[in-house]
Design a protein around this nucleic acid. Structure first.
Length: 624
RNA sequence: GCCGAUGUGGCUCAGUGGUAGAGCACUCGAUUCGUAAUCGAGCGGUCGCGGGUUCAAAUCCCGCCAUCGGCUCCA
């Protein structure tokens, strides 16, 4: 057996960094993790352990839960294995022999994996360490706890193996012992299927160098610093309260002020882009949802219906049927189309308790929804117009980098293939006209039609899904919508669903994280705070505040009576963009000592200079 | 929903079977002060909720709720 093995060269941690090597390194880390776990907890059964974007994980089946202490021990064991610089050896094996061997080890998951490998494909295993031919199969190999010093050969027979297609590093020593870390343990279903047994997943992160690991950990800290749930609390923007229930958002005055600014911007942008606005109810007769198909296809996400005078009513999970009813309310000529109707429509969806997450995943939220009813020949241009509007809106909020997905027909869906092809082609044509690159997500569409999803990249490089554009041939059919064509015949309009923010709640959360709570001046809930040095300047400060408020600025006067240093500290902690100190000198000279968050002390300014500074930042949607 | 962890004043956290604590915030008093915390006093919690064990429960056990990290799902 040993003769078939290809021996690796010695450990090499200085190899040039390339993406393929990083994948191998992470995959090898997963194996080292599994080896460490099985050495420490021999009753554990192994499953799979791939690399991830930042590291690796391995799923284990073990009756007892791993504790944080266990992770520390496992990590130490991994470091032993790495420092022992054990060879990693690939072996092509006979399927039936391996099956017998695995069966004897009671590694049932591995057996399932083995049987899932198509006949004719080679079956390989990867050793860590070198199997000792003298050691009978299944026998306990020597302990790794008394490994030799790094660089010296490991004792013969110290090994572990995993059924695996690879590829891997050549030795465990190629992993830098200070460039990996175990991160967390979590539940995960076998094969990602919630009807299958739940396993314990240990997550780790791994990099080429300790510096890269540190950079990653810093990035994680940075994300924690920007967490909208933390900042939402600290800046008093919103809350989610246990008494009311999970996933239901309370907008506090400052958050509500920002939301109003966002909504105002949105309304103006839509009116300018040829949209009309609608307001429609939050509940409707259940029959409406049966007609629309939601009751059949979306029921899992709908709250239970309620009975009102022997009729069933349904809290809405989507706005589209209401816009359809509005369309249906009268006969439309082809001359009227396209009709573009937008609504900040609040919807309620049942989400399983475990998935709720701050503002990003809630049970009640407001979509910036719109539906375009148009002629078939208008579809492509209308989608292009939506893409343009989306780009304009997102970039005004500071997002200029996008990743675009085209999602095609899912398994659970309505309509004929021909109709789906037509809709998908219209989306592709619009994307081509816009000149945007996109990736296709096969089967990722809504049940009623294909869609374009736009993800935005935030200040620290993360992607967030916001905008969505969907072509729908289904609802017009179900509701028997029509328009009167030039020849007097009745024809079916095509419906485009679209949202730019997606959900106001989620978009707001993304804004908070993108700006880390340091909002551009046009969005800041409080733009300017005046700080009186002592009580004698309070009247002057109030007068200045009044003047600016009348001009539409959001201004406060610090009424705490604290000393100046404390007032500045408080304003900094609240991330107020501009503060103006008012002392005796300023009152005498009718000036203000201005300090901005970005630039610090701006010196003494007159009122008009301050207005100019602020007006410019607002006009350019900049931070100040 | 599932796995694991967590839940103590408005906020951040200490307290592991024996009379509930600190800092900040808040209120009051003194100070009227010049660019990131003035000093002092006071108010404030049936320790997430419900049940159980015990002479005695924030602490141990059970159930539920919420939050956090994941899985599945998703705006």
């Amino acid at each position: 057996m040993v003769s078939q093995l290809s021996r690796p060269s010695s450990g090499d941690r200085t190899a040039p960094s390339d993406p393929q090597r990083l994948l191998r390194l992470r995959h090898t880390c997963a194996h080292v993790l599994a080896m460490a776990v099985q050495r420490l907890f021999p009753e554990t059964r192994v499953t799979i352990g791939p690399s991830t974007e930042t590291g690796f994980y391995y799923d284990f089946d073990r009756a007892i839960a791993f504790t944080p202490d266990d992770l520390t021990r496992i990590e130490a064991e991994m470091r032993q294995i790495i420092c022992a610089n054990l060879p990693i050896v690939r072996e092509t094996v006979d399927r039936d022999e391996l099956r017998a061997e695995i069966a004897q080890m009671h590694e049932t998951y591995k057996l399932e994996i083995l049987d899932g490998i198509p006949l004719g494909e080679p079956v390989t295993r990867y050793y860590i360490g070198c199997p000792d031919p003298a050691l009978p199969p299944g026998a306990e190999p020597p302990s790794l706890f008394d490994l030799p010093a790094p660089g010296e050969p490991a004792p013969a027979g110290t090994y572990w193996w995993d059924l695996c297609a690879g590829p891997h590093l050549n030795t465990t020593g190629e992993i830098h012992p200070d460039a990996f870390a175990l991160e967390s343990v979590a539940g995960a279903y076998w094969r990602g299927d919630e009807t299958k047994p739940q396993l314990q997943r240990i997550y780790g992160t791994a990099w080429e160098t300790p510096e890269q690991l540190q950079a990653y950990l810093q990035q994680k800290e940075e994300a924690k610093r920007r967490d909208h749930r933390k900042l939402g609390q600290e800046l008093d923007l919103f809350s989610i309260q246990e008494e009311a229930g999970g996933g239901l958002v309370f907008w506090h005055p400052k958050g509500a002020r920002m939301r109003l600014l966002i909504e105002d911007y949105w309304r103006n942008a839509h009116l300018a882009a040829g949209y009309d606005l609608l307001y429609t109810p939050h509940i409707a007769n259940l029959d409406l949802w049966k007609t629309s198909g939601h009751f059949e296809f979306y029921r899992d996400n709908m709250f239970d219906s309620m009975t009102i005078e022997a009729q069933q009513y349904q809290l809405r999970p989507m706005n589209c049927p209401f816009h359809v009813l509005t369309y249906q309310n009268q006969l439309h000529s082809y001359r009227e189309l396209p009709l573009r109707w937008a609504e900040l429509g609040t919807v309620y969806r049942y989400e399983r308790s475990g998935v709720l997450h701050g503002l990003m995943r809630v049970r009640g939220f407001t979509q910036d929804d719109a539906h375009v009813f148009c002629l078939p020949e208008q579809v492509s241009d209308e989608i292009l117009a939506v893409l343009n509007l989306t780009e304009q809106v997102l970039s005004d909020f500071g997002f200029t980098e996008y990743e675009v997905n085209l999602s095609t027909r899912p398994a659970k869906s309505v309509g004929t293939d021909a109709v789906w092809d037509l809709a998908t082609d219209a989306l592709i044509q619009a994307l081509d006209n816009k000149g945007w690159d996109y990736v296709t997500d096969e089967g990722g569409g809504a049940f009623y039609g294909p869609k374009i999803d736009i993800k935005i990249r935030d200040a620290i490089g993360r992607l967030w899904q916001c905008s969505t554009i969907q072509v729908d041939f289904n609802l017009p059919e179900r509701f028997d919508l029509h328009y009167v064509a030039a020849d007097g015949s009745r024809q079916r309009p095509i419906m485009i669903h679209r949202a730019i923010f997606g959900s106001l709640e989620r978009f707001f959360g993304i804004l908070v994280e993108n700006y880390a709570g340091d909002f551009p001046l046009w969005l800041a809930p409080v733009q300017l705070r005046l700080l009186p040095v002592s009580d004698g300047q309070r009247d002057y400060a109030n007068g200045v505040a009044q003047t600016l408020k009348r001009q539409g600025y959001r201004v406060e006067v610090d009424a705490s009576g604290d000393r100046l240093g404390k007032q500045i500290r408080t304003a900094e902690l609240e991330k107020i963009p501009v503060v103006a100190v008012v002392g005796k000198r300023e009152v005498e000279e009718q000036t203000l000592s201005v300090r901005t968050r970005q630039d610090g002390d701006k010196g003494v300014l007159g009122l008009t200079e301050l207005q100019g500074l602020m007006a410019q930042a607002i006009a350019y949607r900049r931070r100040v």
